[in-house]
Design a protein around this nucleic acid. Structure first.
Lengths: 183, 183
DNA sequence: CCCGTAGGCTAATAGCATTAGCCTACGGAG
DNA sequence: CTCCGTAGGCTAATGCTATTAGCCTACGGG
């Protein structure tokens, strides 16, 4: 019996491929097994079960999002940095619409996701730091930014903006609204 | 065999109870059947299947949300009305945190949900009408409001605001941000 | 009072996750 | 080079889910 040469990483890779291809509801151990050419129970040698695989997929996406927003923030400051962060976030979601359902809304509540979540939130904090907001004001500002970009991206990815008006223009308005709220 | 006296409405009622009690993932035909004291296949006499039941639950919640925002908008105008709409939305989600996963993001794409979705969106449009925005500007403003309130409410309901700072205060900032973007 | 049908039921099928237990390919120690 | 322990496959079995088929009866209208 030739070995498939799987690994936890390879299993998550296949899971991501399943999600990208057929959406979040299609992520099943059976589908991942089929894609990796292995029997379903064999996956348990690499991953604790479906629940854990879901968490690992969430972690993967959260890390990718962390990369995106970190890159967006680098070398920018002030309104420019805020705009880049928001645009980067939206772009990631639009590039991978099926993935967003797995991006955790409360990553800090799960030990596995905590570090990656903190990394994303730290970028928000860093970008907003330049505005000289007090501690509490900085938290409120961060929540505004998170709410706005999460809300817009999830609605857009779900097809919630049905009207003909240009969605890019709507997003520019969103960015301007956030920026204006920071002074 | 005494009849259970079910109806589509009663099945949806039971489904809502299951969601409220145990969360969205617990909504299964088996759970609804247990709650109504009936065998699982009997539910098919009232509802097309799990998929249709989910849609009906979504419809129920969307209608309730429509009631809430309609009531919030009544007798108010301008910033007051916008604030009431946003607060009403948030309150509904906080009062029923398990339900929000079933509130559809793109109701207009499903014939069953279209009317209820339109009703909600019409309230947004009506509340914003007083600002005298042009057609495209009105659409952008509506998208801002929807994105903000959906993003904030879903993050809050998921436990995504972990820091100690007062979430009510954060939401007041969100409302102020939206209102400021309308002039 | 009778009877058609709506609304229950049980039985059967199929897809899913999960556990148990077996079997072998592979890589390192001698 | 050989031996062997274990990691990484496998099949079989269990149990939960939805769904379909087909039966049986309670109930309300003629």
């Amino acid at each position: 019996m030739a070995r498939a040469g799987l690994s936890p990483r390879a299993v998550v890779d296949a899971a991501v491929a399943v999600v990208d291809a057929d959406g979040p509801a299609a992520l099943t151990l059976a589908a991942v097994a089929a894609r990796t050419g292995v029997a379903t129970p064999s996956l348990y040698k690499h991953v604790g079960g479906l629940g854990e695989l879901r968490t690992l997929v969430s972690l993967r996406f959260l890390e990718e999002l962390g990369d995106v927003v970190t890159a967006a923030g680098l070398g920018r400051s002030g309104d420019d940095a805020v705009s880049a962060l928001l645009h980067g976030w939206r772009r990631y979601v639009l590039d991978h619409p099926h993935r967003y359902a797995f991006v955790p809304l409360a990553p800090l509540t799960d030990p596995v996701l905590e570090a990656a979540g903190k990394r994303v939130l730290d970028v928000f904090a860093a970008v907003l730091a330049g505005y000289g907001l007090s501690g509490a004001e900085a938290v409120h500002a961060m929540r505004r930014a998170r709410a706005v970009v999460h809300g817009f991206a999830s609605l857009e990815a779900a097809g919630g903006f049905a009207m003909a008006e240009d969605v890019d223009a709507s997003f520019e308005g969103v960015v301007a609204m956030v920026v204006a709220s920071l002074r």
